[in-house]
Design a protein around this nucleic acid. Structure first.
Lengths: 347, 347
DNA sequence: CTGAAAGCGCTTACAG
DNA sequence: CTGAAAGCGCTTACAG
C-alpha cells in the first residue's frame, strides 16, 4: 500500500513526548505546555501525520462522519444542500456519507425502521442531516431518538425542538411574493401546492392566503391546485388554472420546478408570459434563470442551509448534554425577473 | 448511547462457536461446516448483529467506503451518477462518501496534490470513483497511483488501462444523432463543443465530423462553436450560429444543458423549433423532457454508469493483484422527441 | 502538566 | 474444519 503512513508513535518519538501527549494536542485538550504543544504540532506537520479514523472511532465514541439521508427522488434542492453540507464537513474534518432510503409510505413502517437502523448501524454516523421528505417524518425522528443519534433538520416548519433546525421563514417569503403579484394589480392568483407530507406546503399556502386577506381579497378554492413539486404537476395545475372562466392572471407555484411546468404550458398554449400571465416560483434553483422568460422567485440560501445545518450539528456533538437549540432562520430574498408584470386587464 | 449493540462475542456465544468462526462466516470464508455456518447466521439475525466498521477497518485493511470526488460545479450529470453509485455501495455493504475539490487548474499543482492526499488520508477509502472533470486528469490519476488507491473512471475515452473504466461509445452516439439530422435533410448543422479539458468533447466532435464526411459533406469550421457544457454557453453559441448567412438549420449541442440554452435563444428570437431549427442534445438529463418542445438527445445510462463503476470497483478490491480490466461500454440510445424535424428549405 | 497500562471489536497469522 | 493468541492505532480511565 505505497509508503507506510506515520502513526502517533512516530509523532511522539519525533517530538520527544508520549503518545498520550500527542493525542492531547490533536484533540485540543488542555494540560499541555505551550512549548510542548508547538513541538508536537511541528512534528505532525513534518511527518504529514493524519490520525487514523478507524482507530479513533473504535476507541473513542465518534466516527467523524455525518450522514445525509436522501430519497431516490433527487432534486436540485437536495443536491445544493448536499453541496453546502460537504463543504462544512470537510472544513471541520468530518466526512459526509450519503445513504439512500425510501419513505415510510413506500413500505411498511416496521420494514422502514429496520432498514434505517441497519443502515445507521453500518455507518454509525455522529450525526444525521435530514431534508425533505424525511425532515418532517415522525417515524424517522423516533428512530434517531432511539438510536440516540443527533439530527439536523433542514426546512421543516413543524416538529419538536431540541434538535438542530435550519430553515427560512417560508410563510413570510410566500407572503412577500404574493404581495408582489397583488401590487402588480393581480387579483386572480392561482396557487400550486407542493407535496402534502411536507410542512412547507402548508406554510407557503398560509403566506399566500395571508397576503390575499391583507388586501381584502377572499382566497378562492378554485384557484388552488395540488402539486408534487415536480415539472409535470406544474403543467397539470396550469392546465386547470388557465381553463377557468375567468382565468387567473398570475400563478404562484410553490417551487421552481412546478413554475417551469406552468411556463412551459403557457408557452405551448400561446399564453404570453408575463403579458397575459405572471408566474412566480420558489427556491431560485438553477432552472429559474434557465427558462425564458426568466423566473421571478424566492431565493432560498440552499447551500448555506446545508452548511449551517452541518456546522451546528457538529457543534452540538462536543457537548455531552444536547442543549435546546432555537431554530436558525436564514434570510430569504425575493428575486424579481421577467416572468412577472402588471396585470393587463384589471378586473 | 441507547441500547448496547451486540458484538461478535455475543454472536459466538449464542451460536456456541469461537469468534473466529463467526468472522469466517461473516466474510464468506471457506472452511466452515455448513451446519455451523447456518447456526452462526441464525445468531446474527436473531441479535441483529452488524459488524463494527471501525474495528474491521482498523485490523483489516479495508474501510468499506468508496469515495466520489466532486467538483463544485455540480450538474445533473454528476448527481445522477452519484445516485447510481450510492445504490451499488449500499447494496454491497459499502458506504459512499463525498469529497469536494477544485481542479488542478484552479490552484497550483503542488497544492492540489497535497490537498488531495490529505483528503484521502482522512477518509482512507478503499476505492475512488472519478467523474468529470477529474476522470481525465493526469495529476489526479498519478496521486491515486502513488497512494495505491484503486479508481473507477466514468466517461473518459482516453487514458491508461488497468483501472476500472465505464462509459458509452461517445463517438458512435454522436455519429448516430448527427446522421439523424442528415437524414432529415439538414446539411448546415451547427455543433457546440464542451469543455476542452474533457476527452468527450473531442470524441463527440469526431462522431459529428465522421457522420458529415460519410454523407459527403465537408465539415465547416464556421459551424463549430466552443462551449462549456452549461446553459449560457449554449445561448452564446446559438447566437453566433443563427447569425450566420446562411444560418444553420440544425444544431447539435454536445450536452442537454447547452441544448436548452440553444432552444431558449431560438424561442426568444422567434426561430421556430423544429420548423426552422432542429436541435439535439446529449445525456437525456431531466431537462430534456422539461423543455418545450421536448429535446431529441442521446440517453446516457447515467445511473447505471454510477452503479456499474461502483460494483466493478468493489469487485477488484478483493483481488490482490488488480487485473487489467477492459473498459465497460454501456449501451446508449438515441431518443427522438419533438425538437427535430425535416429541414424546411433544403439547400 | 505528563505518562504507562488497558482495551475498543474486530482480523491476521499460527496451531491443531 | 476450528480456535487461542496477538495486535491494528488510537482514547479512556488511572497514576503520578
Amino acid at each position: 500500500m505505497g509508503t507506510v503512513l506515520p502513526k502517533m508513535k512516530d509523532v511522539a518519538a519525533l517530538a520527544g513526548v508520549s503518545i498520550k501527549t500527542v493525542s492531547r494536542v490533536l484533540n485540543n485538550e488542555p494540560h499541555v505546555q505551550h512549548a510542548v504543544r508547538e513541538r508536537v504540532q511541528a512534528a505532525v506537520t513534518e511527518l504529514g501525520y493524519v490520525p487514523s479514523k478507524s482507530a479513533r472511532s473504535l476507541r473513542g465514541s465518534r466516527s467523524y462522519s455525518i450522514n445525509m439521508m436522501c430519497h431516490s427522488s433527487r432534486s436540485n434542492y437536495v443536491n445544493t444542500i448536499q453541496f453546502g453540507a460537504v463543504i462544512a464537513c470537510q472544513q471541520r474534518g468530518y466526512q459526509l456519507t450519503i445513504s439512500l432510503i425510501d419513505t415510510v409510505e413506500e413500505k411498511s413502517a416496521t420494514d422502514f425502521r429496520d432498514e434505517l437502523k441497519i443502515l445507521m448501524a453500518r455507518s454509525s454516523p455522529d450525526g444525521v442531516i435530514l431534508v425533505a421528505p424525511f425532515a418532517d417524518d415522525p417515524v424517522v425522528l423516533q428512530v434517531f431518538d432511539e438510536l440516540a443519534i443527533p439530527v439536523a433538520r433542514i426546512g421543516p416548519s413543524l416538529g419538536p425542538e431540541g434538535r438542530v433546525r435550519v430553515g427560512i421563514n417560508e410563510r413570510e417569503a410566500a407572503f412577500e411574493v404574493t404581495t408582489h403579484l397583488l401590487e402588480l394589480g393581480h387579483t386572480r392568483i392561482g396557487f400550486v401546492r407542493g407535496l402534502e407530507n411536507q410542512a412547507v406546503t402548508e406554510e407557503r399556502f398560509q403566506g399566500y392566503k395571508a397576503a390575499l386577506l391583507e388586501k381584502g381579497l377572499k382566497p378562492d378554492a378554485k384557484h388552488v391546485r395540488k402539486g408534487r413539486f415536480d415539472f409535470r404537476s406544474g403543467v397539470r395545475a396550469a392546465e386547470k388554472l388557465l381553463a377557468l372562466e375567468p382565468a387567473v392572471t398570475a400563478i404562484f407555484a410553490s417551487n421552481d420546478d412546478m413554475a417551469a411546468g406552468v411556463m412551459m404550458l403557457a408557452n405551448r398554449q400561446g399564453v404570453k408570459v408575463p403579458e397575459d400571465l405572471s408566474i412566480v416560483g420558489f427556491d431560485d434553483s438553477e432552472i429559474a434563470e434557465n427558462m425564458w422568460p426568466t423566473l421571478t422567485t424566492v431565493r432560498q440560501p440552499l447551500q448555506q442551509l446545508g452548511e449551517v445545518a452541518a456546522l451546528k450539528l457538529i457543534e452540538t456533538l462536543g457537548q455531552s448534554v444536547p442543549p435546546v437549540i432555537p431554530p436558525t432562520i436564514l434570510p430569504h430574498k425575493m428575486i424579481v425577473r421577467q416572468s412577472t408584470a402588471k396585470v393587463r386587464t384589471p378586473v
